[in-house]
Design a protein around this nucleic acid. Structure first.
Lengths: 262, 262
DNA sequence: ATTATTATATTTGTCCTACAAATAAATTTA
DNA sequence: TAAATTTATTTGTAGGACAAATATAATAAT
């Protein structure tokens, strides 16, 4: 079907007629908002690759492709969309990275199950993110940590509690908690929620959290020495307390962080 | 420098010697764990594009590229890594999608500020995700919603409360709450946290949440009619209550969801 | 007729060349 | 010195080519 081509063609001439979209060749270079020119939006340039990517994503979802279903081959897609195979491959390369499709060399491509967090994993680097994003991530850990008590108490097992005990027993000094010990303890808590996405997500956030706190909010790394609620306290409540008690303790445990932003 | 080539070459022959990695041409097709063959891991195939992508990401971060810094051009990168410009472009296409780099046509590429959530946005489609991921997302909304009270009370403004009031006033029937009204109210709460990443993230999760609940846990869409805690109740507490009270009310408000999983 | 072997077509991965178009830099002209 | 022109650079896009492995079809052998 030439529907795609036709629509693009219509959109092209319509846009040219309204002259609110600038082109380079067939490539839309910028879409300008006619109604509010004042807010000078960042130029949204859509290359052919961008458009093919969107087109493919729409095609795959709207046609109900399920994992394992075979995709049309690259040449067919290219002809259908009237672009070169290069452009199609660049778009498919993106979908492959996201895990949406899988290429079996010399056999064809199949639909796959996208990994929800792989896109974040590649980007979550403290050195790259904006200050705003870093601050938000910093805060998000606090939100997440305050949100899990119900799940912890509903799903905790003897095995989990023993592991936490063991993690604490490996702790060198009761007063100073190293970064690794901190991650080990809290990481185990996330794991105990039984929620894989949450666990991975939170673990991804940890380094950023640390980076933000030590870099921008406080230079003294031994701030936690005087922590009024230790990991031992938290574990004790997790054993014989309630979600509310645990949350209150966690708030105090993280008080120094809360204090720096709220 | 031919260092890259050299290292790859060494790794290649080492791997071949150990015969724990299978090749097709120069492409690593699968890396097999020698120690535990039993767990039959999914084949991890690394194409040239994958390797160039990793290589580029490492190069950009390790060399401290900041937003606005100019990248080497495609030809140079290709020569340096000893691959074709096509492969480099496929890798760069991925980085462009993630917002890590920006291409200014005919002038060169520059480092950009990656968008933390764009990778998730493209993939977060209920029809594509695995059951496991959907369940996890479903639960994550509950965690997040239980985690925000401290932020809400610390950052609420008169303007926010008035907006919530207005949202509720637009509500048709006090007994039945439509999906749109639900999203409007809770969406405003997320926005009130003052955390942009959180707000976007939570808003992304909403459709999936709804999809999971209506599709798998309950077919009766009017389940919330008998909700013991309404949006009005939540707003009242938000005005004159405490974070703890609000959280307790929120738990009851979401009780039907909690009941279906905990 | 069934099996084994061989040949063919298919398809991704990779490389190469080419050129348009716009910008930046260099050069020439006024 | 300033303006105009030319040149070089670089991404975006197109298209051709081929290796290698797989699936399919065709052929040969038992």
């Amino acid at each position: 079907m030439n529907l795609y081509k036709k629509i693009n063609s219509y959109a092209y001439f319509l846009a040219k007629a309204l002259s609110c979209i600038t082109f380079i060749g067939n490539t839309i270079m910028s879409v300008m908002s006619v109604t509010k020119l004042d807010t000078l939006e960042p130029l949204e340039s859509l290359s052919m690759t961008d458009r093919v990517e969107n087109s493919l994503r729409g095609y795959l979802t709207e046609n109900g492709f399920k994992p394992g279903d075979a995709l049309p081959n690259e040449q067919e897609i290219a002809q259908q969309l009237n672009v070169s195979r290069n452009v199609v491959r660049e778009a498919l390369s993106r979908l492959r990275m996201l895990g949406m499709v899988e290429a079996r060399p010399r056999r064809g491509m199949i639909m796959a199950q996208p990994d929800l967090l792989v896109g974040i994993e590649k980007v979550l680097n403290p050195a790259l993110l904006s200050q705003g994003n870093l601050k938000d991530i910093f805060e998000m850990r606090l939100i997440l940590e305050m949100g899990i008590p119900e799940f912890l108490f509903a799903r905790k097992t003897e095995k989990d509690l023993n592991e936490l005990e063991e993690i604490l027993s490996r702790q060198q000094d009761a007063a100073t908690v190293s970064k690794e010990e901190e991650i080990a303890f809290h990481g185990k808590l996330y794991e105990m929620t039984g929620n894989d996405v949450f666990s991975r997500f939170q673990t991804l956030l940890m380094p950023t959290f640390d980076h933000v706190f030590t870099g921008y909010y406080n230079t003294d790394k031994k701030i936690e020495i005087a922590n009024p609620v230790t990991h031992h306290d938290l574990l004790a409540i997790l054993k014989n307390g309630t979600p509310d008690e645990f949350r209150k303790a966690m708030y105090t445990h993280l008080a120094v962080y809360f204090a720096s932003i709220l």
